[in-house]
Nucleic acid binder design. Structure first.
Length: 658
DNA sequence: GCAAGGTC
């Protein structure tokens, strides 16, 4: 008997289909499906796992946080425990039949470890006749048949490199998570956490927030001219753009406002192209969903998972931005033309480019995210429908011709001062008809050198420089990818974790007081930096190449952790009180102008938030609060009424005067 | 009640 082990259900079914020429049967052991067929008189069984089947955990006696010495935890050996009882039962049952086993998990580090876990679990139950490895980087007929006729051995070094990662992550994560929670006296569901990926990610947000808060806006002035050519009105801005010197701005303003006429000095026109966006990988998918549909990244991934499980989109966890050669693009387009989204699909069909757009990242394990089926729109929620339609739109856009624009720059003289009007018109919209673009377009009238224009008005407008923008969840995921933090499958979960720990709040994540305090406590250690991951990556490569021993790498990491823990322990009191203080201050936004108590964000009986004095009931002062947006304290007071000024999002307001 | 990595 031959037993083939795959990493996931969909892979198992497709591989069974390829190996059996479509002649396989689906059977079940309890709830677990597997696929079976007979070839050359031998029975084949193809099993689909659900990722890892073993996980690490510490022995029971180390699981009482308050009674366990952290020093002991650092040096403790974690146990392996089975994650999914039903799958392990099936594997054990198959092992008893002494089969030839072929490991056909994903061709990567974790895939190799999943394979090794499976073999070790099965070997406990029966003697395996042989163990082989099938390596393929795409589930296509050719790649699979090729892999199965050139079977190799399991790469133990590669698997052990993943094992080292797993042990190192757990020992650092568990030890420091417990340390910071114990120091801050946060127990149960309120615990705080630290990890190799989550902490550097949080540090990015904290750094950015510090820049935003210390930012001092600088006033500047712009001078604009409202002009008219024929019947068309348009705007031009003085060529200096930003005047940081108000006197200079006033001089220019006074000089130009007396003019009665404007004259076109030069006209510059350019034809420009806009290439469609590249096919969706997980990162660009999440970034587009969060920015276009305003759906949080974890939710977007959940929806993608749902659409995939129902056979409407391809596998959503991919780093690939290039369609594979064998992708049936014409067929998919045809399918979309007879779907409720036919209108867009027909526009695409009439505007096809020669070859679909290619992104920079090309991998062969999964194709970019694209539609593979048509759901019943009536049965989808509004969000599911939105996500599906965005995937369709993106797919169509990648097949379409470049958009053609005409950009114009017109220089206009007004009493010796030069003003500039800019316009951007769409000549050939092409893919812009099916996919949203962030670019702004505006038309301005046709003009020629020497044209005289009517001046409607000249205005001097005061503006202020703006602080850096907060990262959206999508840009945060891009940033994580750039720094090598997390994987396509985990980045959104890391973000969710930060929300669960109340380290961040709001749609555009804003770090809370506890985030500032925790990052401050660990800022001098590698665990708060992306370097720890890049260092670990290097060591994993060396283990995989056989140039380092995995146990040695783990032991060295333990020694470092041991020292880090010693150093943190010496500072435990100070770290603990600074986090506790930060959490207490989290809801305080300033002083009560009436009695000097603290003004605190509170929730009323009907669930609305408001500002109330901490000395209630002896002081009954309250202010209303906007119900939306993250509220941040400033150290300013309102000049009119003395109430504390608060920041809502990035805007400062007085809760009393507005 | 810990992490990060797979997957549903």
């Amino acid at each position: 008997m031959k037993v083939v082990i795959c990493e996931k259900q969909i892979a198992a079914r497709r591989i069974a289909g390829i190996l059996s020429n479509g002649k396989f049967k689906t059977k079940r052991e309890g709830k677990v499906p597997y696929y079976t067929f007979v070839q050359d008189g031998e029975e084949w069984i193809v099993v689909g796992l659900k990722g890892h089947i073993l996980d690490l955990d510490y022995p029971e006696e180390l699981n009482r946080w308050r009674n366990t010495s952290l020093k002991k935890l650092v040096w403790a050996e974690p146990n392996r425990k089975v994650i999914n009882r039903a799958i392990s039962k099936l594997l054990e049952k198959l092992a008893e039949k002494n089969p030839d086993v072929v490991i056909a998990t994903d061709f990567d580090r974790e895939g190799e470890l999943i394979g090794l876990e499976t073999v070790e679990l099965m070997k406990k139950k029966g003697k395996l006749k042989s163990v082989k490895r099938a390596r393929f980087s795409a589930i296509t007929r050719r790649d699979i048949l090729d892999a199965f006729s050139n079977l190799t051995e399991l790469d133990h070094n590669l698997a052990r490199s993943a094992e080292a990662r797993r042990i190192i992550d757990l020992m650092w994560g568990a030890t420091l998570t417990r340390f910071i929670s114990l120091a801050a006296e946060r127990y149960g569901k309120d615990f705080l956490s630290i990890g190799r990926v989550q902490s550097p990610t949080l540090a990015i947000l904290v750094e950015r927030e510090k820049e935003i808060r210390k930012f001092v806006p600088k006033p500047y002035w712009i001078i604009i001219a409202r002009l008219q050519k024929g019947k068309k009105k348009f705007l031009a801005i003085h060529a200096e753009e930003k005047f940081f010197d108000e006197k200079k701005a006033t001089d220019v303003f006074e000089k130009s406002r007396n003019a009665t006429e404007a004259e076109v000095k030069s006209v510059e026109e350019k034809i420009e192209k806009r290439i469609p966006p590249h096919p969706f990988d997980t990162t660009s998918f999440l970034s587009s969903v969060t920015s276009i549909l305003k759906i949080p990244a974890p939710k977007a991934m959940e929806i993608a998972e749902y659409l995939y499980m129902h056979g409407w989109i391809s596998y959503p966890r991919t780093d690939n931005t290039v369609y594979p050669k064998n992708l049936q693009i014409r067929e998919i387009l045809k399918m979309l033309i007879s779907s409720p989204l036919s209108e867009k699909a027909l526009i695409a069909k009439d505007n096809l480019r020669n070859y679909p757009v290619r992104g920079k990242k090309e991998t062969t394990d999964h194709p970019p995210i694209h539609p593979v089926g048509i759901p019943d729109f009536e049965k989808l929620t509004q969000e599911q429908r939105g996500v599906y339609e965005l995937i369709v739109s993106r797919f169509l856009a990648t097949l379409m011709k470049d958009a053609i624009l005409k950009s114009k720059k017109i220089e206009i003289e007004i009493n010796g001062e030069i003003f500039v009007a800019r316009g951007k018109e769409i000549l050939e919209p092409a893919w812009l008809l099916v996919y949203p673009s962030r670019e702004k377009f505006s038309e301005i009238p046709e003009m020629e050198e020497g044209d005289r224009l009517r001046i409607i008005s000249i205005e001097k407008i005061r503006k202020e420089t703006e602080p850096p923008k907060r990262l959206s969840q999508g840009s945060l995921i891009h940033e994580m990818e750039r720094l090598g933090l997390g994987t396509k499958s985990t980045r959104h979960e890391i973000i969710k974790k930060l929300y669960d720990r109340k380290y961040i709040v709001g749609k555009y994540p804003v770090p809370t007081g506890s985030a500032f305090a925790v990052i401050d406590a660990i800022k001098n250690y590698d665990i708060s930096k992306p370097d720890m991951t890049s260092q670990l990556e290097k060591e994993m490569d060396m283990i995989a190449e056989g140039r380092k021993n995995w146990e040695e790498v783990v032991r060295k990491s333990r020694e470092i952790l041991d020292k880090v823990l010693d150093s943190l322990m010496r500072d435990k009191e100070r770290i603990g009180s600074s986090i506790r203080e930060a959490i207490e201050r989290q809801n305080v936004v300033g002083k009560c102008p009436s009695c000097g108590g603290d003004m605190v964000i509170r929730i009323s009986k009907n669930g609305k938030r408001f500002l109330g004095c901490s000395r209630y009931p002896s002081c009954k002062l309250t202010y209303p609060l906007p119900q939306k947006g993250v509220i941040i304290a400033t150290d300013k007071k309102c000049k009119k009424c003395g109430a504390p000024i608060i920041m809502v999002g990035r805007r400062e307001i007085c809760p009393n005067c507005g």
